[in-house]
Amino acid sequence: MNRSVDRAIDIIELATQNRGGVSLRDILIKTGMPKSSAFDIVRSLVKRNILREIPGKTTLYAPGRQLYFMGNSYPESLPILKILIDRLQETAEATHYNTYAGVLENDELVYAYKYKPKKSILTAAGLGDKKPLHCTALGKVLVSFQKPDECRRLIASLPLSRLTNYTITDREEFSREIQECFDRGYALDIRENDDHTFCVSAPVLNNEGVAEMAVSLSYIYSENISLEKEIKIIRDIAHELSQTLGYSGPRPGKKQGEE
């Protein structure tokens, strides 16, 4: 990659990782690039509205409006999401649950789409946010429905960090969980990623039966909640989308007599 382009990307990533903004000094320390080069790149990014200046004793640089527009166009660039958006929005408004689509990138879950309905009281993950695979329903589905060799690699190599008391951190237990997700055709995250939430997810499969992405419903955890309705909703959406990708096999985890 061209060095200037590489440096510009490094600066943009720093700005997006520090919501309050990042100073030129911080950019120099964290990237190691020469001051003159960093300053020229920052000025160009500000001029194009990819970054914006936050005046103060020390000038800070934060994501600009053009970067926001570019980020929001990401879902539209994935053909499957053009079909997906209406279903996720419709479902979210009907259930008051947050809905998401996630993809697997560099052994992490990346949120490619999210919709928070008007009546939701749950904080929504942002577009492009990253989460671990092992403690999210979306992530577990994405691992479960990879090709066998890739699935085994992920099970063996993912760091199983503890986020809550319910997070799976034992590798054998994680392996069993992934097999169960595959067998039943969906994944659950019951307070594994956050103490106060649950999530139900199902895979969107391509014509090879590999998860192209995953979709999910999420809401505040309650001890009395029954997830049968939520599981059916998200599996129906995922299966419909899988068919649009050319998947013609049986519904994942399909039970005998189920259509």
Rank of each mutant, 00 (worst) to 15 (best):
Q146W: 04
S120R: 13
E76I: 12
G20L: 04
A137M: 11
G32P: 03
T91S: 08
A211K: 02
K35C: 02
Y219T: 08
F145H: 03
L28M: 15
R176F: 10
F145I: 05
G102R: 04
A156V: 00
D195Q: 06
R7K: 07
R52A: 08
G209R: 07
H96P: 00
E223M: 08
T136N: 11
R19H: 08
T99R: 11
N224T: 07
D6I: 05
I190H: 03
L127Q: 04
L14R: 00
K82W: 05
E230W: 08
A187N: 04
R48E: 09
A214E: 11
A15P: 00
T95I: 06
P55C: 10
Y219E: 12
I237K: 11
K114H: 07
N224A: 07
V46Y: 09
Y111Q: 05
Y113D: 03
V110I: 14
D129Q: 01
R235A: 10
R176S: 13
G32I: 03
G21N: 09
R162D: 06
S216N: 15
K254N: 12
G209I: 04
L84Y: 04
C135V: 14
A62T: 08
T167D: 15
D189C: 12
E192W: 02
K114T: 06
Y221Q: 08
I237P: 11
V42A: 11
I225K: 11
G209Y: 04
E177C: 14
R87C: 02
S44V: 14
C181D: 05
I237M: 11
K47D: 08
A101G: 08
C181L: 01
L84H: 03
S226K: 14
N49M: 03
G56M: 13
I54V: 14
D189R: 07
G126D: 05
A137G: 15
V46C: 10
I225S: 07
G32W: 03
G257D: 05
I41F: 12
H239G: 07
E150N: 08
E90T: 02
P203Q: 13
A92T: 05
L241D: 15
L160G: 08
R162G: 09
I85Q: 08
E223L: 10
T58I: 15
T95P: 03
T95Q: 02
Y97W: 09
F69A: 09
K57A: 13
L163S: 06
E192D: 03
T99P: 09
L122R: 13
L163C: 02
